[in-house]
Design a binder for these strands. Structure first.
Lengths: 246, 246
DNA sequence: CGTTTCGTTGAAGAGTGTCAAGGCCAGTGG
DNA sequence: CCACTGGCCTTGACACTCTTCAACGAAACG
């Protein structure tokens, strides 16, 4: 079992938000230089998390949020009787750890699916600075709200869509997020296993595998292990909307 | 189709948080009198929503949050192809509308399941006062985070539990929330239809009905239409955890 | 009191899960 | 460099849960 990465890491650096090319994703777009100076005080350090290690685990004390600089994470919750559910996959520029604010303890695990680097944002400092920089406060609230909206979408998916519809929606969502980060929207590498996709989508890994095979057979995608290419996005969209010829 | 309740309502009153007996649920517990005075400025008015009417609908402009004073609401999201999913049921003391912050538009419908009264909290005012009253800001962030955690729980339920496990978890959750509000934890009225329960749990109404009948047959509950009594909460807990004798 | 909405139950069928076997691939150690 | 290993993925056959369709009964509403 991978352990939580050590909190004191040789690779801790002073961060520099003003020069970070992710700030459009992770921070307000328009900041005056004095506001930016305040925001720079936010990020204490960076931290590296190796593939398979946890950024934090359920039950850990919460004291920081993390802005994903590089890499790929999954979040999982585990029920008292041991069921595990992937609640999300996180890409560059996204903020993780929001679940910890409510009780000062993390409620889920965040595990790196590839070597990952995050900016550590001490939460008390964020609250303090947010109360002085309104645009930051507003942005932070929007980030939390967006997470709530995202989860509504997942509930819709889990509650009312069939296996192939879920998978199509998932692939299109990944595609769109890769595109927003400047990568190809048609060709990318799945960082997660079939089992992890299945857990996220409320399906078994065999069902995921079969659905991928069927999409490939129908000419919607090409898939080779983790390598994926979307050849017919409109076809996927049709499937997602339940308009599929079956 | 029920329409959005008119924004200008005869029953709008000046609110008074300091004397509201819900403030332990909806607002920070410990406020100095000057802080309380600031918070009182938060709530502009109250608003009544009749059974079947909407407090807001997806696409409506967002400008306020709502603290539920009295009544019962459901939130629903609808996909582009018309699928509807209940994302939550809201009881007295809970805050709704958080989904609207992200884009200044509501992303879901909030519909009253019984005659309901809410305190209207203009969001700009909340942001302003929160930046001056740290305990309020902290509390607000916790409320949003708690919503995220709650949704993780729903994802776990939808993604990895069977029909009867879902329903048992749902009944126990309701029970606990009624108890927290001073009502009986063993006997209560379901404000929603079987179809709405089913939508929330990712099941068809017939499945909900059958599961309820089976629980009743097995002596876990007594059920008469919307009236429900939990006679064996431990039995329900066992079912929820998948330890059910089948 | 009629009409409509809501709830219950049965039978049949579809969609996923379960179980099992085998293939592919990357990493490891001889 | 190659064989070995273990993790990951694919595919088939079968079982089972849940949905679908349908009919009926009960409660709520005007």
């Amino acid at each position: 079992m991978p352990e939580t990465a050590s909190p004191l890491n040789a690779s801790q650096l002073r961060a520099a938000c003003s020069t970070c090319n992710l700030r459009e994703l992770c921070l307000p777009l328009q900041l005056s230089s004095s506001e930016m100076a305040a925001v720079e005080k936010l990020v204490a350090t960076r931290r590296k998390v190796h593939r398979g290690e946890a950024l934090y685990r359920a039950g850990d004390d919460f004291d920081s949020l993390y802005a994903l600089r590089l890499g790929f994470l999954k979040s999982t919750v585990t029920s008292t009787d041991g069921r595990e559910q992937v609640t999300g996959f996180h890409m560059t520029g996204e903020l993780v750890g929001l679940d910890g604010i409510s009780t000062q303890k993390h409620h889920c695990d965040a595990v790196a699916l590839e070597d990952t680097e995050v900016c550590v944002i001490p939460y008390e400092r964020l609250e303090h600075i947010a109360s002085e920089v309104p645009v930051l406060q507003t942005h932070f609230h929007k980030v939390m709200s967006r997470e709530i909206v995202r989860e509504h979408g997942v509930m819709l998916l889990l509650g009312s869509m069939h296996a192939e519809e879920r998978l199509a929606a998932f692939l299109l969502n990944l595609s769109q997020r890769f595109e927003a980060r400047g990568y190809s929207r048609t060709e990318f590498v799945l960082r997660m296993t079939r089992a992890e996709i299945g857990s996220f989508l409320g399906l078994k890994l065999e069902t995921v595998s079969r659905a991928l095979s069927r999409f490939a057979h129908d000419g919607l995608i090409e898939v080779n292990q983790k390598r994926l290419r979307i050849t017919d996005p409109d076809g996927l969209r049709a499937i997602m909307s339940g308009q599929a010829a079956r």
